[in-house]
Nucleic acid binder design. Structure first.
Lengths: 212, 212, 212, 212
DNA sequence: TCGTAATCGAGACGGTACGTCCGGTCTTCCC
DNA sequence: GGGAAGACCGGACGTACCGTCTCGATTACGA
């Protein structure tokens, strides 16, 4: 039986394909530049010069400064996909997890993170994307930690999990954007011991109508 | 002997005094513009045109786009200086307090708030200012609510108060900036019942070294 | 004895030969585009798109925008190679000749001609080409007309011929580029009767040192 | 009766007036740049840099590269407004006049002149302007030379004057743009003796219907 | 009937210039 | 002096074009 030449798969686009190497070079330069000067003083011209690319090459891929920044940041985050090892206790698991986050948001990346947040809310569509790809991933990781803890018998239930995640994310953001402070060890311990663990252990009050 | 023209008191500056009306007109226009287009597309030229003022008049009062925005936002917030009335229970007090905040951050002001946050972290000095004048004020209000509650006997102690305030602020920020969602009633109830009240009632675990 | 592979003639290049049809399609599109938008807004990208050709196909044949334009214009001009018929008198011969020129420079080709002129002086090499291939051809045609006239006894000599040609070319150019006006009948009659014929009949004054 | 403060004249525009010095600096730099690199490689960015002006300052005055060039060239030309002195004979008067034109179109200004011509035909409105202000001025000067000659008795009439002017302008243009050659002495003598003077002395043939 | 070599359309690439916009300062005239 | 108007510099923005290069897919020719 005669096969059609491309019966099955992935029709290849006509014309010269995009050069993946250029793309990576641009994103690398973007990360570099972003950490050096921050979002506001980040300019496409400078980026192009540093990546030895032309502006057209950049604008062919992303239509905005914001979008370039977004993608650069996502590349930075998304490199550690492997699951976290079991540390033996809920508290240790949480500290390990948060230390992992903290690493990618070290103080030298402060400007970068701020850029991310800005890029997020200036383009709602990308905001959506960001939520899906970054936050939901973190959420899933925490949930798996909590389930492990329930299995261990440390926690009665994972009922408070969603709230804990919600609070956690907000506080990390606040620390970085509002306070502009680094996610150092002291802060992480404070977060785990004074906020997350108490919330997990104290079931939400069912006191909607009570006199409290 | 020739009398100085302002012999009486409070040495008055030479020349024509600043026109208070202009100032208000500029701030009003700033708020308007900010809510319409957000911080990024907010330009001093446009502001000047809309306020029928000149750029010089603006820069004579504020040295930055950021500072104009900051003051505009503060005017918006700071209009209710009076203490909140006692609602009879901690929960009601908190809901009342937060409803009050929510009013000034209605959805139509979303862009404005985002702008504020940005202005904050792009200028550390203003960040400082903002912390002092806005956040610390809120903090004080909450603390007084909590003390009232301890006096009532609802709470054993106000020990968790600082943490609660910290969490509260972060979550309000996250809601507005990260989610871009309004501070509606459902969210406020959720915040009070599922986060703040549990935290206040469960003392921070002293489990720094425990097996948890 | 081993035969050279192309013993017969004109060694034919290896590989696929150029497609003559493409060449014509490109030139046609060039003429079209040139008359529509003029030289300045004529872009190779647009030309390629309109001719359904790729830029490489164009640059394989011509090395410049200028050269494409040049050749397009020459195609437009050079279609009538046959000698002009004898009209019986010098004046009629001249009018016939110029009417012939005018046809290829009809008003709808104004932008095209202007483009040609520009292409000429921005690239000296093409300028040379243009002189040789277009102008010298015209010059020869006029000279043959004048010689015919001398043979007829209308003119004493063809001594003024070179000057007449020189003036004629300059005035056609001036009319098209400077005035932007069409080469209509009235202008051609004016040119023949008021400029060319007088010059031919009045020998150049030998008054270089005279008091004139 | 109380006078309105500006009853008579020239209402002064509000705001800071344009800085005449900047304007001149820009035009000077434009002339300089134009003679150095020619029209095509003349860029507004480079102009701005050289004039130590911002692009906005340039675009506030002229909306195009073409318009800047036009004005620069006109400044260059229009500086010698005084009438030409009587040289005693028609021929000498003409040579003097043309020598004067030649000076402002010296070979080092070749690119500049070409730029002028280009600017002219790319903007019809400026073309109009150019005709009025430059060419008509030259035309008037020639006419006054011819009238002087008629008064002297050298010429029977100035009837051929318009044709002579027309031819003259076309040939100067042709020399500069078509040939790219300088207006040197030999060319000017040729022009006067072989073209202009013969035309002036030989009345247009009245042979419209003749057998010639 | 292949392989070689040049063609073709499509379009990415580095550069360079364009014309617009904005931030923050300065200047002029009027009150 | 304050205020409106607006010019000024510096510099980033996003677009368009040039001339080159790189794909994958077609052709011819010659072995």
């Amino acid at each position: 039986m005669v096969q059609a030449p491309a019966e099955r798969a992935e029709w290849s686009a006509p014309g010269r394909p995009r050069d993946e190497v250029r793309e990576q070079a641009i994103l690398d330069a973007a990360v570099e530049l972003l950490t050096e000067v921050g979002y506001d003083r980040f300019s496409i011209d400078t980026l192009a010069a540093r990546a030895r690319a032309s502006k057209a090459t950049i604008y062919r891929r992303w239509s905005n400064k914001a979008e370039v920044v977004l993608e650069a940041v996502r590349r930075l985050e998304g490199d550690h996909e492997e699951a976290l090892p079991d540390q033996g206790s809920l508290r240790e698991d949480l500290l390990e997890f948060m230390g992992c986050i903290a690493k990618s948001k070290a103080p030298e990346n402060a400007a970068l993170v701020a850029g991310l947040v800005r890029a997020m809310h200036s383009d709602p569509e990308l905001n959506e994307l960001m939520h899906c790809h970054v936050m939901d991933q973190k959420r899933a990781e925490i949930l798996s930690i909590l389930e492990r803890s329930v299995a261990r018998g440390e926690l009665a239930s994972a009922a408070s999990a969603p709230v804990a995640v919600e609070v956690l994310q907000a506080m990390l953001l606040g620390r970085l954007v509002l306070d502009g402070a680094p996610l150092d060890g002291a802060f992480l311990v404070h977060l785990v011991d004074d906020v997350v663990l108490p919330l997990l252990r104290c079931p939400p009050s069912d006191s909607r109508g009570d006199a409290t």
